[in-house]
């Protein structure tokens, strides 16, 4: 690891000013699970690390019926998974958080750090997109709110300005009839980086799907919604045939990447399988 200066500002304004002063030479450190590894492997060698550990505004989980859920960016994955309100109101998010990597990484890594690092082969981003989550970005200049899908720009690239910090995530209150599932394919049971993941958020009346968000990630530079698949699902009672048809649309429309972990055709096929199984699970369609 190359040497660096370490700073631990106490407030958001101070952190933002430091980031502005240091410019490209600085990185923000939260839980450090991804960043420390990148430093050790010399993929990154910043002159300054700015820790946000003391910035209280980045902590805590809060809920109200009117404004929905607020998760501070420094909340660890295990805190998200254990939160009673998350388990009760956003079971899809709690289930996702409880399966990220392993217990040690869930204790160290934070949900904000995960989003800012923008590693595509992780669990949270697609799941948050399917839940229609927003991020609040803050700097000395003020705050702005972006949808997660606008925040994630490309492979390891976000919309953060150099002096901005991710303050918190906001999730809308789930409406009556809303439900969702997050599922992924790991190449082996011991693997921690999904090859493909699928997150589906729906509203339904009876067996009819009235709204859908279908998000495919891990095989794409950033998670992508599949509008044609969403449109095919909406307005219908969901049967096994329809689930298979929607999954086929996903396989056709997903812009899958190709690398040593999996070729493009294989990733498309797996996106199809995971989508079909996830829809069957979500709509209680027992596989025969």
């Amino acid at each position: 690891m190359r040497e660096f200066d370490y700073h631990q500002p106490a407030t958001l304004a101070e952190a933002s000013r430091m980031l502005a002063d240091f410019g490209d030479g600085a990185r923000v450190i939260a839980g450090g699970t991804a960043l420390v590894l990148a430093l050790r492997q010399r993929m990154l060698s910043p002159a300054h690390l700015v820790s946000v550990a003391d910035v209280e505004a980045l902590r805590g989980i809060a809920w109200s019926e009117g404004s929905g859920l607020r998760i501070g960016a420094l909340t660890s994955h295990s805190e998200v998974a254990r939160s009673a309100i998350v388990q009760q109101r956003y079971p899809m998010l709690a289930a996702m958080a409880s399966r990220i990597a392993d217990s040690q990484i869930r204790n160290q890594g934070t949900i904000g750090g995960n989003l800012c690092y923008a590693d595509p082969a992780t669990d949270p981003p697609g799941c948050l997109m399917a839940l229609d989550a927003q991020v609040v970005l803050a700097s000395r200049r003020g705050e702005r709110v972006l949808a997660v899908e606008d925040f994630l720009v490309d492979y390891y690239t976000t919309a953060l300005e150099p002096d901005e910090l991710l303050l918190e995530l906001r999730l809308p209150s789930p409406a009556v009839g809303s439900d969702g599932r997050y599922a992924r394919l790991l190449r082996t049971a011991a693997d921690h980086r999904p090859l493909v993941n699928v997150a589906i958020g729906v509203h339904r009346q009876g067996s009819t799907c009235t709204e859908a968000r279908i998000v495919v990630g891990a095989s794409t530079p950033v998670p992508m919604r599949i509008p044609n698949a969403e449109a095919r699902l909406v307005g219908h009672a969901v049967t096994r045939e329809l689930a298979a048809e929607v999954a086929a649309i996903v396989a056709q429309d997903v812009v899958a990447l190709s690398d040593q972990r999996g070729g493009e055709a294989y990733r498309r096929q797996m996106a199809q399988v995971v989508t079909r199984r996830t829809l069957e699970d979500l709509f209680g369609l027992d596989a025969e």
Binding site: Y6, I29, G32, T33, V36, L37, R40, Q41, S78, D102, S103, Q104, I105, N107, Q108
Partner: peptide, 23 residues
């Protein structure tokens, strides 16, 4: 030393972490 094997696991404030990934 890359956060995979867990041989360096210790507890910090009662929570298990990987000490090779923590400053």
């Amino acid at each position: 030393e890359a956060g995979i094997c867990g041989a360096c696991s210790v507890h910090v404030d009662g929570r298990v972490v990987k000490s090779c990934l923590m400053l």
